[in-house]
Design a binder for these strands. Structure first.
Lengths: 149, 149
DNA sequence: TACCAATAGTTAGTGTGACAAATATATAAA
DNA sequence: TTTATATATTTGTCACACTAACTATTGGTA
């Protein structure tokens, strides 16, 4: 296999990742979910781990701090999340899902699982495992120092 | 396999696609390439197909028209691309690499192939074929009407 | 105590992505 | 020929990614 051929993965990877996000976003919109795909990722992680700091959450969802700041801003504005001052450290916040946030997550979760399945038509469970393995290997190959999981 | 497990691919896919772009962009920067990753994709396609219209190019690189307009704007500002009025159709342009653009492409091409290879350490040619197959299947599953290649 | 490096978070700037709407021109239909 | 429709590109808006620079606070150490 030549170098030339190897270089195409980056194009296909980018194209497919965008399509997956775009497809989900369209479904989110037609279902009036009132959140974006990335906002959902944040909400979902907050529902599974209460009282995270922004830094802890950023490490969970693999987003950088400025991006997370803005997503949290939007989620606060929508009333799904609150920034609670950290009792010991005045630099940081504990992130907390509001009542509205909790019920938003539980009402959207099943619908979103459904949407996510569509991508796997014509593919096997073995394909799924291989896909995850390859994605993780690529990630680690490029992740220099931190070798993050 | 439960629905829950299936939903993780979208996170891994997005994370890996971002890492691939970020890694390449860092290398581009440390090598003073003077283009972004997406600008490179456009330049490369123009070097292989001269005198495309913006619509034709948009279909090649799978970017939407407004995005492409802005990338072309930047490449024109940098002097790598020219918009030549279409001789028959006054609505459209033929895109043309300048001298500078041509030499930029040929000087960067080998360096970029090198950068792209890094992702494939610890992976086999068979992995590569499976990866492409799965990416393309997912893309087509979500691509509703147009069934684009 | 006073200094200093590290940490938490924000702000600003640039580039990109998706979508809707606007403009200009071309082409087909009445 | 006039009208309607389709096409090529641009503009505007919002969201996200990444970098760099900045503020505030913490904790260690001289």
């Amino acid at each position: 296999m030549t170098q030339e051929q190897y270089s195409k993965y980056s194009f296909l990877l980018d194209r497919t990742a965008r399509k997956v996000k775009q497809y989900a976003q369209q479904q989110f919109k037609s279902g009036d979910f009132d959140v974006t795909v990335d906002q959902w990722l944040v909400l979902k992680n907050l529902s599974e781990n209460d009282l995270l700091s922004q830094t802890e959450l950023a490490n969970l969802v693999f987003k950088d701090h400025p991006t997370l700041t803005r997503i949290i801003d939007l989620l606060c504005k929508k009333g799904y999340v609150e920034r609670v001052p950290h009792p010991q450290d005045r630099r940081s916040f504990q992130l907390h899902l509001t009542e509205t946030g909790v019920s938003k997550v539980s009402s959207l979760r099943p619908e979103i699982l459904q949407i996510r399945e569509k991508a796997w038509e014509n593919l096997s469970p073995h394909d799924f495992e291989e896909f995850k393995r390859i994605l993780n290997t690529i990630y680690q190959n490029l992740n220099g120092e931190s070798l993050g999981q």
